[in-house]
Write a protein that binds this DNA or RNA. Structure first.
Lengths: 126, 126
DNA sequence: CTGTATCCAGTTGGATACTG
DNA sequence: CAGTATCCAACTGGATACAG
């Protein structure tokens, strides 16, 4: 059991590991960039095209965050113009596995959630 | 295989199930409230005390979101003053399972991420 | 106790222009 | 190609006051 004791890290305390990771994952684009890289390395603009709706600014920012956390590797090749490749680190690949569980849950239950929202609207007239 | 085909829901398209669920989970307090309820029903102020740092406004807002998505049930008892209990629905309990995978990943790998951030700082002097 | 309503400072993130 | 820099409109969320 590698998991730290609840005494050291309280789930409901600020700054616990869960909050750190969920803060990163919750950044809206992070999990998409992570999943986009799971099949192998991609260049900046390839990523940009792959993830619908992401702006250049947010892609840069998201990648920097992932790089800092040791989840993604940035490789620069001194071609002209420059070539930059991004790929998952082993840690990033590992996180991807956990993200997939949530992703699969989403696909399997989205209709239940949609139905619940419709029912809620019906019960709560404007 | 219940998972919908990639044709119907493209992971990288706006509005796909993953984005909807991650948007909700990513709301900073959502996953904490979800996990706080996994051991049974709680009242509003019990939840408030359990989740460190959440404001009354955000707790209300988070609970309304979870309720709309069919993840949490709100029960009002006409006592004086009023008593309100929140509990997970089966759908919410199901989501909790997926959230736990990510939570456990966080506990198991937070030190790797901390180390990566320290290394990044060392390599990128201000 | 369990909220709702309002104010407002801080953050987010797109658009745009520019660089090596 | 792969960014950086800047502006700014929109959204977020805490604090506070009030209510059933």
């Amino acid at each position: 059991m590698d998991t730290k004791s609840p005494t050291k890290y309280d789930l409901f305390k600020a700054g616990c590991p869960s909050r750190q990771v969920f803060d990163r994952i919750g950044e809206r684009w992070t999990f998409l960039v992570l999943l986009a890289l799971q099949d192998g390395k991609l260049r900046f603009n390839e990523l940009r095209r792959r993830v619908e709706g992401i702006s250049q600014k947010m892609l840069t920012q998201t990648l920097r965050g992932l790089e800092q956390d040791g989840l993604v590797t940035r490789s620069v090749f001194p071609t002209v113009p420059v070539t930059v490749e991004y790929s998952l680190t082993p840690l990033g690949t590992s996180l991807c596995g956990a993200v997939h569980v949530l992703r699969n849950w989403a696909y399997d239950h989205i209709e239940d959630m949609d139905a619940a929202r419709a029912a809620y609207q019906a019960d709560h007239p404007a």
